[in-house]
Amino acid sequence: MNYDYSAYYVLLSLVLFTIGTVGFIVRKNAIVAFMCLELMLNAANIAFVALSRRVGNLDGEIAVFFVMAVAAAEAAVGLAIVIALFRNLETTESSDAMELRL
């Protein structure tokens, strides 16, 4: 007999997502903010996998696969932006980048 604990996993995903959101708001360093973004994506992935198992088809796991692809693309572009920011302003703090035009 298997028990389905998907609600607990969704709850865990909610907690992790909230922690990621709080970190994204609080931290000033752009790279740490980016890491908090990864936390939020992973929290969503946990919910996807848990509910995919609950519903009984693989669509949720496919969604996680695409989230990972998008996260990889986002990591490349985001870190390139941070490097460009550092090269122009000598800082990685997101609050120092106040002008659109560098």
Partner: peptide
């Protein structure tokens, strides 16, 4: 978390299931 959490528990209660779950 404390507002949304109870809804999640209510939405997907813990059930016993006979059939083996899907395999990823």
């Amino acid at each position: 978390v404390s507002v949304v959490g109870p809804f999640i528990i209510e939405q997907w209660p813990i059930v016993a299931r006979e059939e083996p779950p899907i395999s990823g």
